[in-house]
Design a protein around this nucleic acid. Structure first.
Lengths: 411, 411
DNA sequence: CTTGCTTTGTACCGACGGTGAACAAAACAC
DNA sequence: GTGTTTTGTTCACCGTCGGTACAAAGCAAG
């Protein structure tokens, strides 16, 4: 009993995790490339693939593949098991929440959204979120291996308090991770034990998702900047791992100075990115008052898309692009990423005038002339949600044999 | 012949490198703690230690240790072999150069300095530097495993050009790494092949040295800020590895805005850290003209130490501390390090009024109130030099068996 | 000094993962 | 059809590491 456990935890095929990660991120479509990517012999790669298949995580298609092309015996193709286990991912945002069951590869199996107005009691919201997930699990009959939550706030490590849940009407410092774990424990979802239940900042998790499955694939040092409702968020993925700082508070980029004569900010300075390049700032620059319905992001996006011909809108867009570019240039000087991805309003601004933004960044970053950093729009739907799922999948990617634990509890 | 080679390169005791690193950084004083730190059995740790001893890298002292204290059989103590191999480290700075032979553990075995005025031809300087190192190797009879160079300039990866060797009178973009390697190859130092010859920014390497052997030991995310002559440099060590960005240009912190009404900077903005918090700025704030002799750092340091009673000097120090604190706070918001180390003039400013700097950083960083980041002065002599040695040692720390290569070539 | 107790080092065995080689299989080229 | 190329599979061998048993070296108590 204990014997098999220790054996499994400490030894175990060391290539199992890397192999699953390669399939998970789409870098190992066949067993042959899995062999070369892992740097092992064909025999080992075969054993690893067989073991992952036995764990119910991938499928090995040995039938003759129709895809021709090169010479030699065609390699067996590797797929993520479409009926394999899932994780429960949830996102809370200004307009409500969204939950999803997410399989390996960032595949959304089922999703729900609800609750337009978020009550001030986080425990209540989280119970509703977990109930939504439990319902989807019930209906789909999937096995659930973990759960994670994305929130629009800095998340303090190691305990996961929400430090600035500004547009959630939640109390500052709310112990969101603990509340989420308790909600999960109360719901008694099979497979999801109280030990699981990660929580992270939504922009951080979006960056993680884009890095693994979206526009950030292949980047080594990936910087993401996004603005969803109020303020500006940043995230950084280094060597495939999210850098959230020693206490989870890294990449609070909102207080870079981008306009010395700008509006005062609650941080004590003036002209911060937070108040100069978010949806509200855009509406203000275009001399539109924020309307009562729809999120600020939606109002700003609609304005940008539908009235870009209007000179005042265009001027506002140019102004925000210049400020955003200044902020990004500052980050480039500090972080020197090899790719930048923009989300939310900033994605729209990039779409409106890509050249202007790239020119500003190249001009104001120290070494911008030599090449320039690629700046791309984010490319995934629900990327924060998928990123939360990545968080929940991480233990499995680190050691796929964990799926054997609690195996009897699967629903 | 080739058999042993492949065996050595691909397999080999996986714990060998980590074990050497533990002894190297002083975290494994005895075999017992080596066992627990590595998380292996006593038997394995014993075999690993014996192998490292056989490689001539460490010595295992099995004699009865005089140090008593705890109960039970005293553990064998582990030392770095004092007569073991060394690497050649060199640093070029505004006042000349310094070379050293550095053993494991950052121990400087021999050192030389020279050449007060650096000629404009880097190849000439590097030849002189290498000749100095070769001389020391000759005299000491040590075996040399590698060589590395620290320069006061951003170093572009992957080729190692000096991008802004401002106070060296070297041409911008000089291929320093290539020139250094050529100088090494020309000198035909046994053991140092042309394949070795790393180059890095001096502040980056100082940070690496402080992380492993100095005030940064134990930090997970370490930020260093220093000002030596002109401008301000930064460096970041994440999870024990230097983060120099995708093209080596990270942590160019000199162009953070710290004084919106400040002096114009060549980057196009105004009030940049570079021109507001370096030795020249300090002299200016104290209304002293830079003198003809001694580096700017020395002049500023002398002024700060010897005339701190002078109100104008004290006011200048306070001003620079405030500006520096603003810049550091910005970096804290972006990087969220768990420790900060200051070098050069900034180390002196910290020493002059530690509380003022810590207060400014805590006040202007977003989450500074909750604890506050420890800010410490750097603690090593010649930390850039030791950091360069770390670079040269890295291949050995990654796989200690490389010392067997070129073994016959040892002098 | 002798007898425990505790901690560490060593010798040995067994388990197991991975390599390497030989062989079989599945495609294309001629 | 016969080669050639690439891939999958089987199997023997080797090395590393875990685990156990035992010896060694100190302190503590009598």
């Amino acid at each position: 009993m204990t014997h098999t456990r220790t054996t499994r935890l400490e030894r175990g095929r060391s290539a199992l995790g890397p192999a699953l990660e390669l399939v998970h991120t789409g870098r190992a479509p066949t067993r042959a490339v899995l062999t070369s990517e892992l740097g092992v012999t064909r025999a080992t790669a075969g054993a690893v693939a067989a073991e992952l298949e036995a764990l119910g995580l991938i499928t090995v298609d040995s039938r003759p593949t129709a895809s021709a092309g090169s010479q030699g015996r065609p390699s067996h193709r590797l797929f993520l098991d479409e009926n394999g286990p899932v994780v429960l991912a949830a996102q809370i945002h200004a307009d409500g929440y969204r939950t999803a069951l997410v399989g390996l590869g960032g595949r959304i199996v089922a999703t729900e959204s609800g609750c337009d107005t978020i009550p001030a009691d986080p425990a209540h919201v989280l119970a509703e979120v977990v109930a939504s997930g439990a319902g989807m699990l019930e209906r789909t009959g999937r096995r659930c291996l973990g759960a994670a939550l994305a929130i629009p706030s800095a998340v303090a490590e190691p305990d996961g308090e929400a430090l600035n849940p500004l547009h959630l009407a939640w109390p500052t410092g709310a112990p969101v991770r603990r509340l989420f774990r308790r909600a999960l424990a109360d719901a008694r979802i099979p497979g999801v034990t109280a030990g699981i239940g990660f929580t992270g900042n939504d922009v951080n998790l979006a960056a993680l998702a884009e890095h693994r499955h979206g526009a950030g694939r292949g980047a080594r040092d990936l910087l993401c900047v996004a603005s969803g409702h109020r303020g500006v968020g940043g995230a950084l993925v280094l060597d495939g791992r999210l850098h959230s700082g020693s206490s989870g508070l890294a990449l609070e980029v909102g207080h870079l100075t981008v306009n010395p004569e700008g509006a005062p900010c609650h941080c004590g300075s003036r002209g911060c990115l937070d108040v100069e390049a978010d949806p509200l700032a855009f509406l203000g620059a275009a001399r539109r008052a924020p309307g009562p319905e729809g999120s600020l992001l939606r109002q700003a996006t609609d304005l940008l898309r539908e009235e870009y011909d209007d000179p005042s809108v265009r001027a506002a867009a140019d102004l925000l692009i210049d400020r955003l570019g200044l902020g990004i240039a500052g980050l480039v000087n500090i972080l020197n990423p090899d790719r930048i991805i923009l989300g939310g309003l900033h994605r729209e601004l990039l779409g409106a005038d890509p050249e202007r933004l790239r020119a500003v960044v190249a001009d104001r970053s120290l070494w911008g002339r030599s090449g320039g950093v690629p700046i791309l729009p984010c490319s995934l739907d629900h990327n924060s949600l998928v990123g939360a799922a990545e968080l929940a999948w991480q233990p499995v990617l680190d050691d796929p044999l964990v799926v054997l634990e609690e195996g009897a509890a699967s629903g």
